[in-house]
Amino acid sequence: MEQLNVSYLPTLEDHINMTLEKLNMSVPKENKIIFRIIGAIAVMCATAGFIYLNENIIQTICWIILTAAGLFIISYYDITRPYLERSRASRFYNYHKKDLCSKTVMIKDGKLIVSDEASKVKIPFDFIYRVRQTKNTVFIFYDEVHFCYIPVRVLSEAQIKELSELKNKGN
């Protein structure tokens, strides 16, 4: 196996891509489908109620609220949540900009080494919980929640392939 040695300083775009792609990974597809179905049902019920069961102003307001709720639920995982996460990631990055330091990721002598100014992790492949590659980011999970990430832009094709092999060695 070729020795991997990559150093990078995460940019705002790296951080936002990482946040959005992690959100995408963590939400099951079934959740998105269920949300869209529930939202569609809510909108259809509200439309039917508005047409056939509309006796007073309070009922009208209820149907309008239900329509708004339905549209919100349909668009939650496609528009609302990504927008909120993008804003939060941007604020987080700008707040911590001066504390961010470059990370070095190495594969050497059968071990994964991730280091920066304040910390160093040096673990055998067996300790890796999961490796996932998305469009812009490679995630290396130490456990269900904690991970390090490498932007795809700093990796060559050979290095991406090596990290995929790491996934097989770790599992």
Binding site: K120, V121, K122, D126, Y129, Y142, D143, E144, H146
Partner: peptide, 29 residues
């Protein structure tokens, strides 16, 4: 998280100084 991690349950040595602290073992610093 604890069950899925190989590092959290390991023994660490801790050193608390005036301005910072350090935790370390064979795998993690």
């Amino acid at each position: 998280i604890y069950k899925s991690s190989e590092m959290i349950g390991k023994t660490y040595s801790y050193d608390f100084c005036r301005e910072y602290f350090v935790m370390k073992n064979k795998y993690h610093y």
